[in-house]
Design a protein around this nucleic acid. Structure first.
Length: 271
DNA sequence: AAGGCAGCCTGTAAGC
DNA sequence: TGCTTACAGGCTGCCT
């Protein structure tokens, strides 16, 4: 689940809670495999000061002093939960950061989530690999056309590819293309100028609205206070297969598979 | 270079 | 009720 709006929600809440000047008191690693790079130095973080918490793509970055960073990716079912102190972890909690004011629990049912411990340089190199922030001013019609140029992959796959655009996942990709009236199967290189303008416009509008609603909790996503987001109440096409399209009120929303993932669309509206 | 697909895990819902 | 199957919002690595 967690895509840009959900990760943004968690990041900004955590930022308010633990920035600045809080110390990492200790750390508990309950499942080693969730800790990837830098696992062996992970205990160094004790007594480091937290300088900042920010988001890039779907990564949550907790910036520490001495040029080190804790980098969290929630993947499918990851959660970061903030609790006052002495939280009692259930069996899905994979790691705990004990900070001055409370405990941060990394909870993840499917265990795909990751935590890396990276120097500023290593972090910079990791972040270079991911594409443009869709909410930045630099993401515009021209930029999207540039990204789509000479790509034979379907536009949906391009929107999902973090190398090109950072933060859009499966839910928002379906929603964006539905509002833009673009067929998700259309080759990226065939996207017109007008379609590119609409895709950019709806990407920004939908992501901003979803952030305002604290994300989308179809399933396991929760914010740091263990609360659900409200954006699923605003979904127009995602998982609406079998229902009447709300735009044309004639055709039925269908589910197709692209790259092994579900796409939801109205075959009448999206050409 | 780029696309397709299995794999990482566990839970839930649907179908029989 | 219980068993089996399909599916789940992400990403990597290997193969073609």
């Amino acid at each position: 689940m967690p895509e840009l709006p959900e990760v943004e929600t968690v990041t900004s809440q955590l930022n308010k809670k633990i920035v600045p000047n809080q110390l990492i008191k200790s750390v508990a690693i309950l499942r080693k495999r969730n800790i990837r790079k830098g696992a062996n130095q992970f205990t160094d973080i004790v007594n480091r000061q937290i300088i900042d918490v920010f988001r890039r793509g779907k990564y949550i970055i907790i910036k520490l002093d001495q040029g080190m960073n804790i980098v969290v990716h929630l993947r499918m079912t990851g959660q970061l939960l903030y609790e006052k102190k002495d939280a009692k972890p259930d069996k899905y909690v994979r790691a705990i950061l004990y900070v001055s004011s409370g405990d941060i629990l990394f909870r993840d049912i499917r265990t795909f989530g990751t935590i890396d411990y990276l120097s500023d340089t290593d972090l910079e190199n990791e972040l270079k690999k991911i594409g443009i922030e869709p909410l930045s001013q630099l993401f515009d019609q021209e930029r999207l056309l540039e990204i789509c140029k000479k790509k034979k992959a379907p536009i949906k796959q391009v929107l999902l590819n973090q190398k090109y655009i950072a933060g859009i996942g499966n839910i928002y990709a379906s929603e964006i293309l539905f509002e833009s009236l673009v067929d998700p199967q259309k080759k990226a290189e065939d996207i017109t100028r007008d379609e590119a303008r609409k895709i950019v416009d709806y990407t920004k509008r939908i992501l901003k609205k979803a952030i305002k609603e604290k994300g989308c909790s179809d399933n396991t996503y929760r914010d740091i206070y263990n609360q659900k987001g409200n954006f699923n109440n605003f979904l127009k096409v995602y998982r609406k297969n079998g229902e009447k399209c709300i735009k044309c009120r004639k055709a039925t929303v269908i589910r197709i598979v692209q790259g092994g993932r579900s796409t939801f669309m109205c075959p009448h509206c999206q050409k």
